[in-house]
């Protein structure tokens, strides 16, 4: 930019020198009366030229670089902020996706666990009931057996007592005619008959 400006200034100074010569020669030529308007006059031309070149130099050195830098910095910041917002948004979307998936997996797992627990509970319940039933049946069977045994023992006891009692009654009825053995044999015969009747 510097060398370009210097080279340019040199060229422009040359060109303005030529223009100055041309304008200095102008009054010597024959022009129409009012054509003076269109001829550049040195007191205006040269100050304008120099003033514009000076302004160009001043602004190019001091004003435009800072202004352009600020505008560029602003554009860059906007672009960066937008990009950061975009990245954050896509990250957030990803995170949301992932969390939703894990929630669904967790729900599935929970459903599975509940189903398994229910099933095991059912099995346990039926097992306990079956066991209880079995033990109840056992107890009842045992009780029945015990009752049977008791009945038989009671029957035996009772039959002994019935034998003795009937011998006593018969002795009293018949008189003391019989002796113990015959009484026993008679009593057993009657007991057998009674027992057969009982058994029927």
């Amino acid at each position: 930019m510097n060398t370009k400006k210097l080279g340019l200034t040199r060229v422009v100074a040359m060109a303005s020198g030529m223009a100055l010569v041309a304008t200095a020669a102008a009054p010597a030529c024959a022009f129409a009366a009012g054509a003076d308007i269109l001829v550049p006059k040195p007191p205006e031309f040269i100050p304008a030229l120099i003033a514009f070149l000076v302004i160009w130099l001043i602004l190019a050195k001091m004003a435009w670089p800072m202004i352009i830098k600020t505008l560029d910095a602003r554009e860059e910041k906007i672009a960066d902020d937008l990009k950061a917002a975009e990245d954050a948004k896509s990250l957030a979307v990803e995170n949301e996706q992932r969390s939703r998936e894990s929630i669904i997996a967790a729900e599935n797992e929970a459903a599975d666990i509940i189903a398994a627990a229910k099933r095991e509970g059912e099995e346990e319940r039926s097992r306990i009931i079956a066991e209880a039933n079995a033990s109840a049946v056992n107890i009842i069977a045992k009780a029945r057996d015990a009752v049977e045994a008791e009945r038989k023992k009671a029957m035996v006891q009772l039959s002994g007592q019935v034998v003795d009692l009937s011998v006593e009654i018969a002795a009293k009825i018949i008189g003391d005619a019989l002796d113990n053995e015959e009484q026993h044999h008679l009593a057993e015969k009657y007991l057998l008959e009674v027992g057969n009747l009982n058994d029927e």
Binding site: A32, A33, G34, A35, I37, L38
Partner: peptide
């Protein structure tokens, strides 16, 4: 316009 002014 300007040429008119010149030519006067």
């Amino acid at each position: 316009f300007v040429v008119t002014l010149i030519a006067q």
